[in-house]
C-alpha cells in the first residue's frame, strides 16, 4: 500500500459519550446558557448546519446531519470555560483620534485597519456595517476608501456573524484582519490553535465590551421602553451608564443601562473579559476624553501599525486614563460572577 501522507490529531473528549459532538456542545454550552454567540462553531462546521444570525445558535437537524467531527467543540470559547479578565498584557496604552475617519469615538478601529491595509500587512478585513433597521451586516473591506461609509464605522449593539465571514476570507487570502468583541477574539485564538489555516488572521482588533444584544430584543426594548425607533436612529452609544440613541431629528433618548438587565443574553452574564485580553490591539471608549478612543497595544504587529500612524500623522494623541479601564474590568467581574450565583441560574430557567 502506497501512502503519501498520514496525519494524526487529537479529538476533544466528549462529556456525553453517546451524543454526537454537536449534542455535547448543545448540552454543555448552548442549553447551559454559556454561549456568547460568537458564531465560531457556525463558521467552522463543515456541513454548514449551525445557524447564527439574530437567534440563539442552533443546528436544527443535528441528530441526522452532524458528521461528528468535533470542530465546533474545538473552537468554542465556552467549552471548558474559565473566564478571562483584567487588563491583560500590553505594550503601550494611549488615547487617540483619527484625523481621516469618523467613527464611534476616535475612529481608531477604522484607522488601524486602514493603516494595516496601506502597509500591506493585511489585504482584507471583516467589518460590521448595518442596514437602516440597525441589523448588523458583515462587510469585507479591501481598500481604505471603503471606510468613509458611516454605516460601516460606529458601534452596533447587536450580534454579528463576523467569524463565518472571517473563515471565508481566510480561504481566499493569506492575510486577513477583523474587528470583534472579546469573545470573538478568544474564539479566533482557539481556531488558530486548532487549525493552522487561521494563522492567516494577521490582525485581531478587540473592542471593549460589557454586553451585546440580540437585535430583535434591543429593537423591541427601545421601542417599548423609550418609544425610540431604531429605524430613525443615526447613532447608538453607551456613556456613563446610559444607553443613548441619537435620532435623525437631533434629539437624544437616554435609558439607564441597568434597565437592560432583562434582555442581556445569558452568555454575556458569565463573561468577565472587558478589555479583550487576547487581541493584538484593544480599543474602546472609556479611559479617554470625548471623541477619543483608548488604544491598548498588546502585540508587536499592532505596535508597528501604531508607529506607522504616528509617522504619517494620521491621528492626534492624548494621555489615557488607565485607572478608568481598570475600574470597568473590575466592575465586569463583579456584575458577572463566575461560577454564576445560584439565584441567577434559577431566573434563567
Amino acid at each position: 500500500m502506497m501512502i503519501t501522507r498520514e496525519w494524526q490529531f487529537a479529538l476533544p473528549e466528549k462529556k456525553h459519550k453517546k451524543k454526537k459532538y454537536f449534542g455535547n456542545l448543545k448540552a454543555e454550552v448552548i442549553d447551559a446558557g454559556l454561549c456568547c454567540h460568537c458564531a465560531a462553531c457556525a463558521s467552522i462546521c463543515p456541513v454548514n448546519g449551525i445557524t447564527a444570525g439574530d437567534a440563539p445558535i442552533d443546528f436544527p437537524n443535528w441528530i441526522k446531519e452532524c458528521v461528528d467531527c468535533g470542530a465546533c467543540v474545538k473552537v468554542c470559547p465556552r467549552w471548558d470555560y474559565t473566564p478571562k479578565n483584567g487588563l491583560g498584557e500590553y505594550i503601550e496604552v494611549t488615547a487617540a483620534r483619527s484625523k481621516r475617519f469618523v467613527g464611534q469615538d476616535g475612529a481608531m478601529v477604522t484607522e488601524f485597519t486602514a493603516s494595516a491595509l496601506e502597509m500591506g500587512l493585511i489585504d482584507r478585513a471583516i467589518f460590521v456595517a448595518r442596514d437602516s433597521n440597525w441589523r448588523t451586516r458583515v462587510v469585507t473591506i479591501k481598500t481604505p476608501e471603503q471606510l468613509y461609509d458611516r454605516k460601516i464605522t460606529g458601534t452596533k449593539y447587536s450580534y454579528a456573524d463576523v467569524l463565518p465571514a472571517l473563515k471565508d476570507a481566510v480561504l481566499k487570502s493569506e492575510a486577513v484582519g477583523f474587528v470583534g468583541t472579546p469573545c470573538m477574539v478568544t474564539a479566533v485564538r482557539k481556531m488558530q490553535q486548532a487549525f493552522k489555516k487561521f494563522e492567516r488572521v494577521k490582525l485581531a482588533i478587540g473592542l471593549f465590551c460589557t454586553e451585546n444584544f440580540y437585535h430583535h430584543d434591543l429593537y423591541n426594548f427601545l421601542l417599548e421602553k423609550a418609544n425610540a425607533d431604531l429605524r430613525n436612529a443615526v447613532k447608538t452609544d453607551i456613556k456613563k451608564g446610559k444607553f443613548i440613541v441619537e435620532l435623525k431629528d437631533g434629539s437624544k433618548v437616554r435609558i439607564p443601562v441597568k434597565d437592560f438587565e432583562e434582555i442581556i443574553p445569558s452568555g454575556c452574564k458569565v463573561c468577565q473579559d472587558f478589555a479583550a485580553v487576547d487581541s493584538d490591539v484593544s480599543i474602546g471608549s472609556v479611559g479617554s476624553a470625548n471623541g477619543f478612543s483608548t488604544v491598548m497595544v498588546r502585540r508587536e504587529v499592532a505596535k508597528n501599525i501604531l508607529d506607522y500612524i504616528r509617522e504619517k500623522e494620521y491621528a492626534e494623541f492624548r494621555e489615557p486614563k488607565l485607572e478608568v479601564v481598570q475600574k470597568l474590568c473590575d466592575h465586569k467581574i463583579k456584575i458577572h460572577p463566575w461560577p454564576p450565583k445560584k439565584k441567577e441560574e434559577k431566573s434563567e430557567e
Binding site: M1, M2, I3, T4, R5, E6, W7, Q8, F9, A10, L11, E13, P46, C69, G70, L171, F195, K197
Partner: peptide, 27 residues
C-alpha cells in the same frame, strides 16, 4: 485519548479531484 487519522492511498487514487472540491478547508 482519541484522535483522528487522515490517510491518502495514492495507488488507489485516480486523480479525479472530487475530494479537492469537497474539502471545506480547501487543504
Amino acid at each position: 485519548g482519541t484522535g483522528c487519522v487522515l490517510q491518502i492511498q495514492t495507488d488507489l487514487c485516480t486523480g479525479c479531484g472530487l475530494c479537492v472540491r469537497q474539502c471545506p478547508m480547501q487543504i
